[in-house]
Amino acid sequence: MDYTALKIKVTDIVSQSGLLCEDKLLKICHLLRDSIDYYDWVGYYFANHERRELVLGPYAGEATDHVVIPFGKGICGQVAVSNQPFLVEDVAAQDNYISCNIQVKSEIVVPLFVAGKNIGQIDIDSNVKAAFTADDQQFLEEINQMVSVLFV
Rank of each mutant, 00 (worst) to 15 (best):
Y3R: 12
L6N: 00
L6E: 00
L6C: 00
K7P: 00
I8S: 11
V10H: 01
T11Y: 08
D12E: 15
D12W: 02
I13Q: 01
V14W: 03
V14P: 05
V14A: 05
S15I: 04
S15G: 10
S15P: 00
Q16R: 14
Q16A: 13
L19P: 03
L20Q: 15
L20F: 07
C21Q: 15
D23P: 04
L25G: 07
L26I: 08
K27Y: 11
K27D: 12
H30K: 14
L31D: 06
S35H: 01
I36S: 06
I36M: 08
D37Y: 04
Y39D: 01
Y39I: 02
Y39E: 01
D40S: 10
V42L: 02
V42E: 00
G43C: 08
Y44M: 06
N48G: 06
H49M: 08
R52A: 12
R52T: 13
E53K: 14
E53L: 13
E53N: 12
L56I: 09
L56Q: 09
Y59N: 04
Y59V: 02
A60R: 00
A60P: 00
E62D: 10
A63G: 06
H66E: 14
V67W: 13
I69N: 07
I69A: 09
P70F: 04
P70H: 08
P70S: 11
P70V: 08
F71L: 10
F71G: 09
G72L: 07
K73G: 08
G74C: 06
I75V: 15
C76Q: 05
C76I: 07
G77C: 08
G77N: 09
Q78E: 14
V79A: 03
A80V: 14
V81P: 04
N83S: 14
Q84V: 08
F86W: 13
L87P: 03
L87M: 14
V88C: 10
E89S: 14
V91T: 11
A93E: 11
Q94L: 13
Q94F: 05
N96L: 07
N96A: 11
Y97W: 12
Y97V: 06
I98C: 06
C100D: 09
N101F: 09
Q103T: 15
K105W: 08
K105V: 07
K105A: 13
S106Q: 05
S106G: 09
I108A: 03
I108Q: 02
I108T: 06
V110G: 00
A115D: 15
N118T: 10
N118Q: 15
N118L: 12
G120Y: 04
G120S: 10
G120T: 04
G120N: 05
I124E: 04
I124R: 02
N127E: 12
N127A: 10
V128E: 13
V128T: 12
K129C: 12
A131Q: 01
T133S: 15
A134R: 12
A134G: 11
A134F: 04
D135W: 10
D135E: 13
D136R: 03
D136A: 07
Q137H: 02
Q137F: 00
Q137M: 12
F139V: 02
F139M: 06
F139W: 05
Q145D: 11
M146N: 09
V149Y: 10
F151S: 04
V152A: 09
V152S: 14
